[in-house]
Design a protein around this nucleic acid. Sequence first.
DNA 1: CTGAAAGCGCTTACAG
DNA 2: CTGAAAGCGCTTACAG
Lengths: 344, 344
Amino acid sequence: MAHSVTMRTVAERAEVSTKTVSNVINGTGSYSPETEQRVREAIEELGYRMNPFARGLRSRRTDTIALVLPNLGQPFYAELAEQIMRAPQTQGLKVVLQSTHGDARRERAVLSAHQELVDGVIYVPHALGPDDYLPLPVTRPTVVLGERPADATTLSLDYVDPADEQGARAVVGHLLSQGRHRIAVIGERTGPMAGARRLRGYRAALAEAGVDYDDSLVISVDDADLWSSGVGAATRLLRTRVRFDALFCFNDVVAVAALSVLTRSGIKVPNDVALAGFDDIEAARFASPPLTTVDLRRESIARTAVTLLRSRMDLENFRDLPGRSESIGYDLRVRASSGVPSSR
Amino acid sequence: MAHSVTMRTVAERAEVSTKTVSNVINGTGSYSPETEQRVREAIEELGYRMNPFARGLRSRRTDTIALVLPNLGQPFYAELAEQIMRAPQTQGLKVVLQSTHGDARRERAVLSAHQELVDGVIYVPHALGPDDYLPLPVTRPTVVLGERPADATTLSLDYVDPADEQGARAVVGHLLSQGRHRIAVIGERTGPMAGARRLRGYRAALAEAGVDYDDSLVISVDDADLWSSGVGAATRLLRTRVRFDALFCFNDVVAVAALSVLTRSGIKVPNDVALAGFDDIEAARFASPPLTTVDLRRESIARTAVTLLRSRMDLENFRDLPGRSESIGYDLRVRASSGVPSSR
DNA sequence: CTGAAAGCGCTTACAG
DNA sequence: CTGAAAGCGCTTACAG
């Protein structure tokens, strides 16, 4: 190897033991200022770089957490990842990111393969439900994004629980309050959980307003490529000729894509159709018209996830604590896309 | 540790040596089918999981590459990251992703700190120019996204060179051919390189068409948060009351944000102002109207970067080969936002 | 404030 | 086809 400068080389050069070099590098133990000076010079002159594998093997700490998520092409996940990397709670930790492409096989593989390289895992499930991932071996502290299933407590899995149902209920309630009663839905299956929960919220809001649920208003889309499936779903919806005065999409990407279809078809938003999305991605705010949507508080999700994870990582044995669950609130973002129809 | 099952435990259980266990796990050497069977059973029964640090320390291979990029909140980078993780050339490699938040200090830190954990690095510079990053120690095969500076050859750095200048020239040429001659620019500094190169392309296209360059048409924005700086820049542009019939944004995010400002101000796109962006992010295709832009061929960039990297990783000594540079083409995406004004 | 020795869990020659 | 031994480069008790 070109780079075979080890701690020992440094120690010899500085005329100290490797222990002292280790102490200086890690700020552990104590040493005189002159010793530190000599060690630092030796490191500099030799171009020494510590071998993280040797350290990891010995100390069993990596100061690294893994973030396992479905797809960076979806702005919600990309923005969530960025928030997690930036959270103050993440200071001092490295974050390695693994995308599973929203594919069940890869999700399982990533989850069971790479835990040993990190001190903890934040897992955003997509293709796998609890029945699929709970049997997988958990060897590191793990925080899951989603609703906690019953068995997770004993497994010491922590959950960050976003307000999918309440958010959907609120935004649909808002559409109803604007006088819209024929509210079509384009619902992707964002993981096995979120889609179902958003649909529940939709139905709850209708029930509350005494509006009947109409199955012909609900379109389901595949979530492999949300942009084009949004276009596809909106096109299908228009073709069915079913009457609707509002459209609620379970995802802003789908909503923005649907907006382009509506606009192209000469349907005015919000005059003919009120439009609402979900997630409050940046692109929603800058759509024309700006999109009414639900903010799941990504920053809060990120902060809570890292905090839960660290607290478990700090434990002697991470299974000493039963699994916890933290609910996150939501914010309804009312924008022009759901405005009251004006006379034209 | 709860999990102190080592290769030795497995070896004892299967009544073989650790060498044989290692062979079975890695598919190296040779062993009888019955031996393999016994080893696999022992692994299964004991719940053995290999310690990657011990392996990395000994074998000096991690089968992992690092992707260092500015900000996952920018769709271009997020989509590029996803492409790199999905590229067929990436098969068999893990990809760890480090976001630098577009911040010079962090960029330097990430770049000099985490190389030892991986077999290679793909580096997307942002805040740092060649003068800043070339002096940093390079201990692993590295591919840089951008134009190759002269000194990079001897450092054995490989470059993937996107068509920033040519792309900008083409899209501005297109706007000119549509009869637009007062072409405003909102140019963020996407790294020290890309912004300057896109501006060169803009000037080249004007020169070619015999149109004078007018400094008052060029607005520069900070790139910390492109969405809001896009809005800010577009607002400023309108306030200057300078006359323009087209707007070229160096970035689709800025273009979409600017579109929302124009629309809100009652300026029709493309009738009053033709609009073009850069990058061809998904949101550009689904803007209303859909955005004319330049596709830098992210997939091709991803594939080329990983291919260059692997070929260097396969070398006995990765510095044996002088630095290489591969140019990537571009595609002009002409969409409705740059259409010819229709009579209203 | 600093050292000498042991050992983390693998893979790599070397041997048979 | 399989074993026994050495060693990768650190940190961790233990000692002084």
